[in-house]
């Protein structure tokens, strides 16, 4: 019924090497999914492919978003449909301020002009929620940001763009305890105010915070090795992957 994202038999290659060998995964409207797996399992590949990265080519299967086949669509069109990816290592773009960029992106997302005053107000609110110094609004996008500030800026974009599906690719990696809390707070706020679906790629339970995960998927060697409830994520984090992968 109300499936937001359906991934069917997805095969993905990069440079003639197959990285994902037939992934099946569905995410319902408003659900929160956790995607886990050992390094190199293909988690980021899956996230990037759903976003439409030209680095990977889809050799089989399909991606359906809100009933529409988006397998062949470019990233910007997917973004305008409401898909968002929080990057592990966001790119630095000199000469464009965070605020200027955000306004442009929000206008693309909403398909209409946004008044500067309103934009600045919303941006300031979201930044304050994430404990970002207001001066970052006028800094060049990601240029010279610390690892923590880059991740916060990604969550800031999540709050501003209000997507229907957000994929968070290790947004917690490399963050200290306090920063993870802040980021987690931002994600909860997204959940609360937007009610969008989430795919959280993580090695760390702390980012889940008070979020209730609906489902857990464990990815290994480019295949879904195991699926379970939200609680599975916590079990895996406690016991390690080995146990769960052997059972397959």
């Amino acid at each position: 019924m109300s499936q937001l994202l359906e991934i069917r038999g997805l095969r993905v290659s990069a440079e003639d090497k197959e990285l994902l060998h037939g992934i099946e995964l569905t995410v319902g409207e408003g659900e929160t999914h956790v995607l886990m797996g050992p390094n190199g399992a293909g988690k980021s590949t899956l996230g990037s492919t759903v976003m439409g990265s030209p680095e990977y080519s889809i050799t089989g299967g399909s991606i359906i978003f809100d009933g529409a086949d988006i397998t062949e669509e470019s990233a910007d069109k997917r973004a305008r449909r409401g898909i968002f990816l929080s990057f592990q290592d966001p790119v630095e773009i000199p000469g464009i301020t965070l605020s200027e960029f955000m306004r442009n992106a929000v206008e693309q997302r909403e398909g209409k002009r946004v008044k500067l005053f309103e934009h600045k107000k919303k941006l300031a609110e979201a930044m304050s929620l994430l404990g970002m110094d207001p001066s970052y609004a006028d800094r060049e996008l990601n240029v010279g940001f610390s690892g923590g500030e880059k991740k916060k800026a990604e969550i800031l974009q999540l709050l501003m763009l209000r997507p229907r599906l957000a994929i968070l690719d290790e947004t917690d990696s490399g963050l200290d305890v306090d920063a993870v809390k802040t980021v987690s707070k931002g994600i909860s706020e997204f959940k609360k105010s937007v009610g969008g679906s989430l795919i959280i790629i993580t090695h760390n339970a702390a980012i889940l915070g008070e979020l209730h995960a609906d489902k857990t998927h464990i990815l290994a060697d480019g295949r879904i090795a195991r699926e379970g409830s939200g609680e599975l994520a916590y079990e895996v984090l406690e016991n390690g992957f080995e146990k769960y992968l052997c059972e397959v």
Binding site: S53, D76, A79, R80, F87, A105, Q108, L161
Partner: peptide, 9 residues
């Protein structure tokens, strides 16, 4: 390019 297009540009 991918980063910016993923934001709708």
């Amino acid at each position: 390019i991918f980063y910016l297009t993923s934001r709708g540009l």
